[in-house]
Design a protein around this nucleic acid. Structure first.
Length: 262
DNA sequence: GTTGTTACCTGTACGC
DNA sequence: TGCGTACAGGTAACAA
């Protein structure tokens, strides 16, 4: 499931392959992946040059010379360069050199096209790797929800998903069901540091391949081997040896060590 | 205004 | 072997 480190890895692998290329044609199937008029978008996309490939939280932001594409990989979305189409290929961008495919079995992903990036992307919270401890603390202070729900809330912080929320809370020694607004200053600072650490390490490992995530060239990530709590329920805690527990919080499987996390 | 819940999706794992 | 069922979870829409 692509979160910030996985999307960042896709963007980094995509950038040298497609930046500067021109879109010759774009085709979309009739699935729910594409928002808006696929035919209109395909007509407008033809002939445009790809100026820049960037990331906003979990969104891939592709700036063109006369418009912008926003791609969200959802749970199982893949942007693949020069790959063979599958029965789950929902979009094909033929470039002047190479082909870009969008594959997505579960169809939780989205592709949007417009003259600018969608406005709601601009309303997302700050980038976790750039947010200051003060701003992070201010945002958590206003949330009367469990801290894990606050971390998953993209208007609080953009890019953290289920894996890295669990891993960051473990590193910070904070229970996922602790109330965000009640966290003391020291704990908030620890969490801020933990979020940045775990995301940076995951980017260095090219993301986590838990189910089927791969980058634009089909390569898996390696950070799943470094998970300390995520999907390790029943196994011993790497720090204290007690059993990692699993609960459901914010409708998500949530993994933590009851002894290390208070 | 804020928080919580549900629908959308299908491949995979598991039990019988 | 084959079938049914639970589970995975990001976002949007809706309910409380």
């Amino acid at each position: 499931m692509p979160e910030l480190p996985e999307v960042e890895t896709v963007v980094r692998s995509l950038r040298p392959l497609i930046e500067g290329r021109r879109i010759l044609s774009a085709e979309f199937d009739g699935s729910r992946i594409f928002r808006g008029s696929a035919e209109g978008a395909a007509a407008e996309l033809a002939g445009q040059r790809i100026e820049h490939v960037g990331r906003m939280g979990k969104f891939i932001a592709i700036r063109l010379d006369r418009g912008a594409l926003a791609v969200h990989l959802g749970m199982t979305g893949r942007l693949l360069f020069d790959a063979e189409p599958t029965k789950w290929t929902h979009a094909v961008f033929t470039l002047d050199s190479g082909t870009l495919l969008y594959d997505d079995p579960r169809q939780f992903g989205r592709i949007e096209y417009g003259p600018e990036l969608p406005e709601r992307l601009l309303l997302l919270g700050p980038e976790p790797l750039e947010v200051t401890p003060q701003e992070f603390a201010r945002r958590l202070k206003t949330k009367r929800s469990p801290v894990k729900a606050a971390l998953l809330n993209q208007s609080v912080l953009r890019g953290v998903g289920n894996i890295y929320a669990d891993e960051a809370l473990f590193r910070a020694g904070i229970r996922p069901d602790a109330l965000a607004s009640r966290l003391g200053r020291e704990r908030v600072l620890r969490l801020h540091r933990a979020v940045q650490e775990v995301l940076s390490e995951a980017i260095d490992s090219r993301g986590s391949s838990v189910s089927d995530y791969v980058d634009a060239e089909g390569r898996k990530g390696g950070f799943q081997a470094s998970h300390r709590v995520y999907r390790r329920d029943g196994q011993p805690c790497t720090v204290c040896g007690s059993e990692i527990r699993r609960i459901v919080l914010a409708q998500r499987g949530t993994h933590f060590c009851a002894r290390c996390q208070k």
